[in-house]
Design a protein around this nucleic acid. Sequence first.
DNA 1: TATTGTTATACTCTATAACTATA
DNA 2: TATAGTTATAGAGTATAACAATA
Lengths: 151, 151
Amino acid sequence: MVQRAANTPIRFGLLPELIGYRLRLAQLAVFKDFCEHVGGAEMTPTLFGVLALVEANPGMTQAQLAEAIQLDRSSIVSILDKLEARGLVERRRAPNNRRSNALRLTADGEALVAELLPEVHAHEQRLVRHLDADEQKTLRALLDKVISVTS
Amino acid sequence: MVQRAANTPIRFGLLPELIGYRLRLAQLAVFKDFCEHVGGAEMTPTLFGVLALVEANPGMTQAQLAEAIQLDRSSIVSILDKLEARGLVERRRAPNNRRSNALRLTADGEALVAELLPEVHAHEQRLVRHLDADEQKTLRALLDKVISVTS
DNA sequence: TATTGTTATACTCTATAACTATA
DNA sequence: TATAGTTATAGAGTATAACAATA
């Protein structure tokens, strides 16, 4: 046989055995649902993550943000440029250490997060809609065990 | 307070509630471990995925590959160029449909997959090293339920 | 007309290295 | 000297649109 018949189902070989493969598929599903249902085309999981982190840590620095979200300091710059241009985040010079910026959400930023929260929770509910409460708890715990591999 | 104290631990706000956030962290951990331990710098989960798919489906077309790995046909081209340049994959003109290429691993490609298999399995063992057999099975099943959200 | 692979192109995301201002 | 933010730049990865060959 030189070529597979067009109607033959594709075999996934050893991929389905691999946790990493399933994680990638799960993340694709999450990303797709988020982008379709949360905040319109200008919102992404990463941007929302930055907003959530700055909200939870008013006055945090860009270096702290970079570490928290696991990106290089230089990558944070354009993300904040974007959010600042939309009037969602503010960079104030930190008075006690004038090398740093103290980050905070603007009133508009706070309002946007508040507005997105129901959409994020609806998104979350769709993701786990085939899992009961116990299973959700279990999934979180098991993912934590995988995450702890790096540390 | 204008700026967080440098020693104050960062709060992650609502992110830890979100399955999508945990999935992203888990995938970062997987990707990092894979790239550090499987095959050297020229191997990535995506390239390995292509090799595994072509191995499991000798004669498959690029369009089938694109669908299986969820990329655009045009994105497959440069991936195959790379693998073909390394002598791992072969594009033969399909005789029964001369628009298509029939993809297969070369002998070197087969040998590389065989060589990487132990490394991939060791990688896999590290990922799930804090999970017992039951938990591994549960994690796979729960991830499948999340993945099924898109379909 | 539709499909397959390809090309040209552009966009997004990310990192590295070098710079500045501050410490 | 070291750190925080920035800039310039480059690389990887991806998609869209248009094209030639084939169906």
